[in-house]
């Protein structure tokens, strides 16, 4: 058990380090086209081979990891914070505020987010630089992805508010902000962590889906999504199996997160 957790921790740390340090670790700029070296197999010059335009796939994978992992984490954090705010407010205030917030939650749950994302992306100014358009994509994922978690947070918060410690704190005359900040939220941490960990792969896959549709991060910026788009043809994968590297990385990172955070929660 400990070995698995350690391995997961090492992997995640490695991923984070490569994500942050991609500019220094990557052997070549991710956008550099070496047109005479297109479609090369893995070798000393290109560890993971090169793509159709002669771009170094290893460098693109490192930069793609930064884009996807950091921004998916940021989007998941945003979604979790919104879910916490909505869920806790609804549970604590009750009455009209509860009904209103839960109706809003239902509304967000019923939105076909993929189509909404497509619409919003179509409305973005066309000259939006790739980094900005990508940040907007993840921001939208975060803004749209909180609703399911908010319902869970509300249910958990209601249960905690009815528990003896909360009643005691209330009876002792604790102010609502203090009750929420020092008693309720710490008790909701496991739920919020779980929601964060559920949102993270969902957003990673959301970006990957957009990338597969050609609507994700725009050229020449790489992301796991647009690197995964190279896997749409089974023939191409059979011929160049190293193309599955981004898929392996997505899978490993998700397993590592599950192993590390899921296990620590179960222990807690």
């Amino acid at each position: 058990m400990k070995v698995r957790s350690s391995a997961a921790a090492v992997l995640l740390i490695l991923l984070l380090v490569t994500a942050i340090g991609a500019d220094w670790i990557a052997p070549l700029p991710y956008q550099q086209q070496n047109r005479e070296e297109a479609r090369q197999s893995p070798g000393p010059a290109h560890w993971l081979g090169s793509d159709d335009l002669g771009r170094d796939l290893w460098s693109r994978l490192l930069h793609g990891t930064r884009v996807s992992l950091l921004l998916a984490a940021a989007a998941a954090l945003l979604a979790t914070l919104i879910a916490a705010a909505v869920g806790v407010t609804a549970a604590y205030c009750g009455g009209c505020a509860d009904r209103l917030l839960m109706s809003l939650t239902d509304l967000f749950l019923s939105i076909p987010w993929l189509f909404l994302l497509l619409t919003v992306r179509a409305l973005l100014p066309l000259n939006t630089p790739p980094w900005e358009s990508m940040a907007i994509t993840f921001l939208l994922l975060g803004l749209l992805g909180w609703a399911g978690a908010a319902r869970l947070v509300r249910a958990s918060a209601l249960a905690r508010l009815a528990s003896p410690f909360a009643l005691q704190a209330h009876a002792a005359g604790l102010s609502p902000p203090r009750l929420l900040a020092f008693h309720l939220l710490p008790n909701l941490t496991p739920v919020l962590e779980a929601q964060f960990l559920l949102a993270l792969p969902a957003f990673l896959l959301g970006e990957a889906n957009l990338g597969m549709l050609g609507l994700g991060v725009s050229e020449p910026l790489p992301s796991w999504g647009n690197l995964l788009a190279g896997l749409t043809s089974p023939g191409a994968v059979a011929e160049s199996p190293w193309l599955i590297a981004p898929a392996v990385l997505v899978l490993l990172s998700l397993l590592a997160m599950h192993e590390l955070f899921g296990r620590s929660r179960r222990i807690a």
Binding site: T119, R121, A122, L124, P129, P130, G214, L215, S218
Partner: peptide
């Protein structure tokens, strides 16, 4: 050049 891929109706 900023490339923007749009779905066909858009």
């Amino acid at each position: 050049v900023n490339v923007a891929a749009l779905d066909f109706p858009a």
